[in-house]
Computed example of a mutant assay.
Amino acid sequence: MEQPAPELFRNLFEQHYPSVRRKLIALVRDEAAAEDIAQEVFLKLYRNPPDQLEAVGAWLHRVLTRQAYDYIDKATRDRELARKSEQALMSEPQAARSNEQAVMDQEEREEVQRLLEELPDRDRKLLLLRYSGYSYAEIADKLSVQQPQVGTLLKRAGDRFKRKAIQAEGIMTRD
């Protein structure tokens, strides 16, 4: 007799969670993050189990490794961004920005927002997610696309945004 899905999942969880957690702690070197990632791994298992349950150990290892590398990549990007921000603050004089610069910055932000609104919904979401620091895996998950497609989709969205910006610049210079 086959076990019901929740009971089967509970058994798989109890059997594999300790080793998944241990491997993640070794990879990310942060116990809290490892536990969060382990939850994501088992959520993926629950939502989309492998076809062959006898291979669940290998499937879990592959998924946990990908999730850990995505976490490490994002943490590295965050640290680099923080370092660059700190360097920029240290190298700039602490003089207050002029009102003219503040107005120009606001106009630029509004123009970028206007250009983003002209893009198709998926392109706008792709660009906003990527420049908000999301990994390709996170973007793929949020937009329900295959992870290998994310790079191509981002390139196309970026090209469309550039074309819109060039068109807008051409219109502005003619006025």
Rank of each mutant, 00 (worst) to 15 (best):
Q67C: 05
Q52C: 15
K142R: 08
S98Y: 10
P49Y: 09
L81Y: 06
K142F: 14
V112C: 11
K125V: 09
D36K: 05
L60Q: 00
A58L: 14
V145M: 01
K74Y: 04
R114W: 03
E92Q: 04
Y69K: 01
E80L: 13
V41K: 00
D73C: 05
A75C: 14
L89Y: 09
Q87F: 06
S98E: 06
V56A: 01
A55C: 11
Y136I: 14
V145E: 02
L43K: 11
Q149T: 14
P120Y: 06
G158T: 05
R66T: 10
R66Y: 07
A68G: 01
G158W: 04
Q39T: 12
S98R: 03
V103M: 05
A75P: 11
Q146F: 06
H61S: 09
E117F: 13
L64V: 05
R114L: 07
A38V: 03
K142I: 06
E111D: 06
A34S: 02
K84P: 13
R160K: 02
M104Q: 09
A82T: 09
L154D: 13
D141F: 04
L81S: 14
E35N: 01
A96L: 13
L89M: 13
K84E: 08
A68C: 04
T76M: 10
E107N: 10
R156A: 09
A95D: 15
G133A: 09
K44N: 07
D123M: 07
E35D: 15
R130M: 09
L43R: 08
R83E: 10
E118S: 12
Q94V: 11
G151M: 08
E54W: 00
D105M: 10
A82I: 03
G151A: 06
Q94L: 11
S132A: 14
L53N: 07
E110H: 08
E108T: 12
E100C: 01
G57Q: 03
E107C: 10
N99E: 14
W59F: 05
D159F: 02
E107Q: 15
L115F: 04
L116G: 03
R130F: 06
A137H: 05
D123Q: 05
L126Q: 02
K84T: 12
V63F: 02
D121N: 06
D123Y: 01
F161M: 11
M104E: 08
E108N: 12
V63Y: 00
L153F: 04
R97G: 05
K125M: 11
Q39M: 10
E35T: 08
R66S: 09
L81C: 15
D51E: 14
G57S: 01
W59L: 02
E54T: 15
T65A: 01
S85F: 04
T76P: 00
R124G: 05
L45H: 02
L53T: 13
A140D: 10
Q101S: 10
K162S: 10
R160A: 04
V41S: 00
D121P: 03
L119H: 04
K125L: 14
L64F: 11
